[in-house]
């Protein structure tokens, strides 16, 4: 499955993991991972370590995720992006909007 998610046992962290391609075809799956979660003060970690390609719709999806996170006063962290993906995130100036580690 291109998108996988795992909620930690203490309900503190939701890890969303994306496979090689992060594009429009994943939008429904991606949305489904977080749309039903309404826990407050949750840390959303987007694991992009396996992601090699990302287009603008992925950036749009991340922004929608961010809107959702802010709605429930959570925190968004993008984890271990590859060099190419990191460049795209920097062009989009996402480092200003969220933590990239």
């Amino acid at each position: 499955m291109a998108v996988s998610s795992r909620l930690s046992g203490d309900d503190k962290e939701l890890v969303i993991r994306i496979d090689e391609r992060f594009d429009f075809s994943l939008h429904q799956q991606f949305r489904d991972t977080y749309n039903s979660i309404t826990i407050r003060d949750l840390t959303y970690t987007l694991d992009l370590s396996q992601t090699e390609y990302m287009d603008s719709s992925a950036l749009g999806m991340i922004l929608l995720l961010k809107d959702h996170v802010e709605l429930y006063a959570g925190k968004l962290i993008i984890s271990r992006p590859s060099e190419t993906v990191r460049k795209i995130l920097e062009i989009a100036q996402f480092q200003r909007l969220m933590t990239i580690e």
């Binding site: 939008h27 429904q28 949305r31 603008s56 719709s57 950036l59 749009g60 999806m61 922004l63 989009a92």
Partner: peptide
């Protein structure tokens, strides 16, 4: 170029929202 990137991303975001409404 930065503005252009911003417009593209915003368009993507709006489109995805449109897609949600469409669904």
């Amino acid at each position: 170029l930065d503005d252009f990137v911003g417009v593209i991303i915003n368009t993507s975001k709006q489109s995805l929202e449109t897609m949600i409404y469409t669904d």
